[in-house]
Design a protein around this nucleic acid. Sequence first.
DNA 1: GGTAGTTACGAATTTCGTAACAATC
DNA 2: GATTGTTACGAAATTCGTAACTACC
Lengths: 85, 85
Amino acid sequence: MNLRNLRTFVATAEDGGLGRACSRLNLSQAAASRQIHALEAELGVAVFEHVGRGLRLTSEGELLVQRSRQLLADAAMLVEHARAL
Amino acid sequence: MNLRNLRTFVATAEDGGLGRACSRLNLSQAAASRQIHALEAELGVAVFEHVGRGLRLTSEGELLVQRSRQLLADAAMLVEHARAL
DNA sequence: GGTAGTTACGAATTTCGTAACAATC
DNA sequence: GATTGTTACGAAATTCGTAACTACC
């Protein structure tokens, strides 16, 4: 597993689409799409579903985005804690 | 930050040296050394100190290895939880 | 026609292992 | 001289952006 894919996943969920998120992440839309698909393949779960032209979290995605956000926060805390030593 | 570097760090701390850990990680000793140095550079902290021919955790490393182990466990739980959906 | 996401492709970056090195025993 | 960790180098693998495509409005 990979924190970067998790960040892209969370950002996309928060922004409600790839376009918004990938500019915030300094990433092309294609790269963001690939990262999310890689994450889904690894977890064996679809985190987004297609609705119209866009993406929406699945119910599984809703659960995972919370856990992912928590893990990313914990990781950031670890870094912050280390740098404060 | 990077979970793989964290895994290498924790494994090396547990095994008390690169040699033991890197065989367990299916990684060359050189790669393990690089990962740990990259982690130290990113965190701005030395997690190991040289003692004789080997490595030993610094006091900061002692603190960080615990947090790292926890983060890795949380990440594994996330994956496990996702796959169970 | 315009927008959102996906996929193919070659380019750029990262990461790897081998080999040579320094230091300790 | 043997063992442990580090560093240089080219090779392998990953990841990227552009561009072409599909689907929806």
